[in-house]
């Protein structure tokens, strides 16, 4: 809640990667009247490739702290290695940075006071402007940790943008999977739109990520993308959703035009309004109904 009006949050997730989350979020950006866009797939962010944001403000993101051992003070007693549960103390008592989870146990047990915990830049967050409105996004350093924490920062920035500019909806492009960045992306959302495809893995992954939504009590709806790849499986998804009381908000056909739109750095609404754009617009109006927006 902010300023007395509730800013609605829509998160687009999928479980399985590559089902079309970003393509659809970019299209929603085209269609939304008063929204902020947020890219929460922080370790492989692609939405900016279509929306081409102009960055207005940059923030450094510090993830977990990391241990550093002062070789001058270290006596080589081995207590840190004995107690580190992450196998992060390497040969010659140099910390293996990508294994260190910043817990501080090494500093706790070091009798020589040789360990410090250092803040470390793990990415950048951006506040930007696009042709469809304000955008919050980020870049995690490749191989970085604490992606969930960076997702939370992107959402907080999006809420700030929505507040400042009087926007009433945040559209979040979520990450694949079911782990910490997904959990951070759906927290506080009014609706999770799960994009699936009618493959056995698409269905399996959809069911798992819907279970995550249920676990965290986030309302969900389903969209079947590339539905004509396998009509039998599409039908199975529809029956399954009905049995669970889940709305299938849209079905989008397979279309290579989506790749051409991507290469042209355009949304499918801009690129093919009368074709696949029409199916996406129908989906969007169902989603708005669901959000009560």
């Amino acid at each position: 809640m902010s300023g007395g009006t509730h800013i609605k949050q829509l998160t687009v997730i999928s479980g399985k990667g590559g089902t079309g989350k970003t393509t659809l979020v970019a299209a929603f950006a085209s269609l939304a009247k008063n929204a902020v866009l947020a890219d929460c797939d922080v370790d492989a962010a692609d939405l900016h490739l279509i929306l081409k944001p102009e960055i207005l403000e940059r923030q450094d993101f510090t993830g977990l702290r990391q241990a550093e051992i002062d070789g001058q003070k270290c006596t080589g007693c081995g207590k840190c290695r004995e107690h580190c549960r992450f196998g992060a103390i390497g040969e010659d008592f140099v910390v293996i940075q990508d294994r260190c989870e910043g817990c501080g146990v090494c500093r706790l047990v070091c009798p020589a006071g040789a360990v410090r915990l250092e803040e470390r830049k793990a990415g950048e967050a951006y506040l930007s402007r696009t042709r469809f409105g304000p955008m919050s996004h980020a870049e995690l350093e490749p191989g970085g940790e604490a992606s969930g924490k960076l997702v939370s920062l992107v959402i907080a920035n999006a809420q700030k943008l929505a507040d400042n500019e009087g926007r009433d909806l945040i559209i979040i492009d979520g990450p694949p999977g079911t782990g910490c960045p997904v959990i951070a992306s759906i927290g506080g959302s009014d609706l999770a739109l799960v994009i699936t495809e009618p493959s056995l893995s698409g269905i399996h992954d959809m069911e798992r990520v819907l279970a995550v939504c249920e676990h965290f009590r986030v309302p969900a709806a389903v969209c079947i993308n590339k539905h004509d790849i396998n009509d039998t499986n599409t039908c199975a998804v529809e029956i399954w959703c009905k049995s669970k009381g889940l709305e299938v908000a849209g079905k989008i056909p397979y279309a290579e035009v989506t790749t051409r739109a991507m290469i042209a750095q355009k949304t499918v609404i801009e690129f093919d309004e009368g074709g696949i754009g029409r199916d996406v617009a129908a989906l969007w109006s169902k989603v708005l109904d669901r959000l009560g927006a």
Binding site: D43, G144, P175, G177
Partner: peptide, 10 residues
């Protein structure tokens, strides 16, 4: 591997 480039991939 999982997709992405964060800790599970590393």
């Amino acid at each position: 591997s999982s997709p992405g480039a964060a800790c599970p991939v590393v």
